[in-house]
Each structure stands twice: as C-alpha cells, then as structure tokens.
Amino acid sequence: MASGRGATFLLLLFSLSCVSLSSLPLTEASKKVQLELYYETLCPYCSRFIVNFLSKIFIDGLIDIVDLNLVPYGNARVASNGTITCQHGTNECLLNTIEACAISKWPDVKKHFRFIYCVEKLVVAHTYTEWETCFQKTGLESKAVLDCYRNGNGQKLELSYAAETDALQPPHKYVPWVVVDGKPLYDDYEKFETEVCKVYKAGDQPEACKGLLDVTTLPLKVKEQRQVCFADGLASSPKLISFTA
C-alpha cells in the first residue's frame, strides 16, 4: 500500500474520478487553459515535476480550468524502421509505452493521472521496477493497459507521440517541456500554475489563483541551474524490466 502523502493523494484522486470531469458549465469548460507536458518516464526531473508540482492541480482545484495533455515520449528517437530508442534505455521505453496505454485506455485525466502519478512516484523512490503494483494501489484493472502494450497498439501510440513532439514549435530542447496556451515555459516550468491563472479568462479566478498572480513585490532570485534532461544524448540500459503475464 502507498503511504503518507502519496496514499492520501491517490485516495483523493480516486474519489475525484468518480464525479464528472469538471463542475464548470459546458461553455466555460470549452474555454479551459491548454496545459501540455512533454516528458519521459525515467528523467528524474520529469518524475519530480509530476509528483511534486503537477499533482497539486488535482488538490487545489485548478484541474477544473485546465485541459491537461500528457505526452510520454520526451527525448526518444525513431529510426527509419520505426524502432524507438529512449534516452534512458529500454526500461524507459517500456514505461513510456505503458503510460501511453494508460492515457489511451483511461481517457479521463483524473483516472490516468492517478496511475501515472503512482508510477512516477516509484521512479522518484528508485523502485520503478515495481510499477505493476500501481494497478492494485489505484484500484485500476491492468488487462486493458497490458494488452495495449503487448498487441502493438502502445508502439503506435508512441509513434504518434513522437510525431507530436517533433512537430513542436519552437522545438523542445529538453524535458520536462511544459506548454501553457501554446507557449513553452522553458526552465520556468515549475511556475506553470501562475501562467495558467494569467491565461484563464473564462470566468472568475479560481481560489487557487489567489496569491499566485501578485508577484511584483517578491525579490528577484538568482536563476538556478536548469533541472532538465537535455535532448542531446542517449543512455543505454542492460535489460528490459519484465512484467507478469
């Protein structure tokens, strides 16, 4: 069983997935802010962003004004024969595909994010080989996702994510690559909530936006070294992590 903040978050997200995607009227829901995350599963900075930052929007309510699109491909490369090579090796290719299948099979963002959060929390803890336990921890059925991986549909999903990532303008330089309303945040990606609140114009500002927009009085900080995985090299992995049949 998950423990501490992780268990509390998974329980909260499970309860949220049992209600409608948004309490906003249809006219307002159609004006949600587009929030996109281009990432790869074993980049430690992507994992930390998902677990420590992105998950907050499901707790503070910003998910109600956000149309979240997760793209698990990152800095991978596609060969001429369609083979995908991932920056952090075959383990990452497996998990990228598993998360792509989760997104496809559970289109409700509150459902597939619950699973992805669980997997990425294991990455942060350096125990990602236990990723299959996330089916039990989240109460989600494994068959559809594992079938998607085994029958080749996951590979097709990854190739579509490759095309989507490669078509980015401007091109992504690293991951996590966070885009709000069509504009990349570059290395200010951790401030994505503030940018979402700036862009949202469909109605009254959500409670979570209060305090985020008044930053003019804050002292300037020295920019820290980028916490990213650059798209400039590939790592190797000795073997593929397995899962049960």
Rank of each mutant, 00 (worst) to 15 (best):
E36I: 10
L212I: 01
L157A: 02
E141K: 14
Y128E: 12
E28W: 00
K156H: 11
L62K: 01
K173N: 12
A167Y: 08
P219T: 09
L12C: 08
D64Q: 12
N91T: 11
D187P: 05
T27F: 09
C118S: 06
C86P: 04
A163K: 15
N153Q: 15
V78P: 01
T97S: 10
E193F: 00
Q225G: 12
C118F: 03
D181M: 01
F192M: 08
C134S: 11
F115S: 05
A208L: 07
W177D: 06
I50P: 00
S242P: 04
S142E: 14
V180K: 00
I57S: 02
P206E: 10
L62M: 11
M1I: 10
T129Q: 14
E132N: 11
N91G: 15
K31P: 00
R150H: 10
E40V: 04
C134W: 02
L16C: 07
K110L: 08
A231S: 15
L218E: 13
L185C: 06
N151E: 13
Y189C: 04
D67R: 10
V196M: 06
I116Y: 05
C118T: 01
L62S: 04
L10E: 08
M1N: 15
F9S: 03
T165K: 00
R48C: 00
T138K: 03
T41S: 15
Y174Q: 12
L140A: 02
C118A: 07
A7H: 11
S160T: 13
V215N: 12
A144K: 12
P238Y: 08
Q227F: 05
V71Y: 04
T244L: 14
L13C: 12
Y149N: 10
D64A: 09
L240Q: 13
S47T: 08
Q225L: 14
E92D: 07
Y149I: 07
Y149Q: 09
L157N: 05
P72N: 06
Q227A: 14
S23G: 13
D232A: 13
T194M: 15
K183A: 14
G211P: 06
L54N: 05
A208Y: 01
F243D: 02
F9K: 04
Q87L: 04
G203Y: 01
P171W: 07
P44W: 13
D64K: 03
A162W: 03
V66F: 03
L212Q: 05
P72I: 05
L10Y: 01
F243G: 07
K198Y: 05
E132F: 11
V71M: 02
Y189V: 10
I103H: 04
W131L: 07
F58C: 10
L21N: 07
Q87M: 01
K198L: 09
V228W: 08
L157V: 03
E40Y: 07
D187L: 08
A167E: 10
R226G: 14
T97W: 03
Y186G: 05
V119W: 04
I98H: 00
E207Y: 07
T216W: 13
F135G: 02
K210N: 11
Y45E: 06
W131G: 09
G89I: 00
